[in-house]
Amino acid sequence: MTMLLPQFELHKPTTVEEAVALVKKFGSDKSDFLAGGSDLLCNYKWGLNARPNVIALNGISSLHTIEPLRLGACVKLHEIASSETVARSLPVLAYVAKKVASVLIQEQATIGGNALLDTRCHFFNQSYFWRTSLGYCLKADGTRCHVVPKIKRDGQLVENGNECFATNCSDFAPVLIVLGAEYELAGPKGTRKVKASEFYHHDGRARFVKEPGEMLVAIHFPERAKTLTAGYKKLRPRESWDFPSLGVAAAIARDGKGKLEHFALSVNAVDTYPIVFNTHVNQYLGKQLDDGAIDAIAEHVKTTVQPKLTVPMEPGYRKKMAAVFTRRLLKELAV
């Protein structure tokens, strides 16, 4: 059965300036940017926060460029996976691109779309009919959260009508964070760059620190990223398709004696935003990344993350696996 998309007007700008002018004209709450569509159109089919104007970005040629340290927001994942430029400069990105969903999704999904992936939840990513039975949720059409129905305020348990706990399931977000990437944003107030590590918001609805009407133009990497040894581990029910139930990314650089010069660690799909452990792991700079250090870091990750029952696999299992995957990844990088 074909699910019909809600009615909207489609706009096809050919420059970033045109796209920004369109969002300024219609208002950010009445328009959405469309890149690959593998996330947005699914949500639209389910009646999730659909808007009357869709601005398709695929016609903007400057968003499709691949450079050694800059990727346009609309570069498709299969292009990243097969690009020689990416393989030479940042091979971890090609690896991650192949880990996102299936090859058919990789044909249309974009790196910008994955970095800005909408947060996911058992009570949100459902059909309109399904959500009707529960009276909707905080993230779409409703007023209460079904994941954390009550929260403590002033020592008393009260109904949670404010905090959304939907999970950030982007594969690229933690990797871009550990590589030190910056997001180039264009909006009605001009262009600016934001560090990937400071871009994600604690609220599952707001998701990003993006200003209203801002769009992602490109992802920039520092020269340092080329010299890093980076990796990514992903836990998911089906290896061929699923979003991550846990994603761990790390990047290290060592001097001639094997001592750490640079260390970054980020864990995703356990909270509303990718958790950055850079401050904690910085204490290991100048030391060897030995088994003792790896075990201590893995244990710290496990005690820090607080997964909720928002995505497949139980929170307790994902918490334990956060330590297992961190240990495995760091041991691989330390070889």
Partner: peptide, 29 residues
Amino acid sequence: VGCDMGTCGCCTVIADGRPRLACLTLAHE
């Protein structure tokens, strides 16, 4: 059209030499 969500691949066609999910892409593109 199977799942209509890009999961099942029933709607795969080849567009400009690449396999694409017809259920998850706008015809205007």
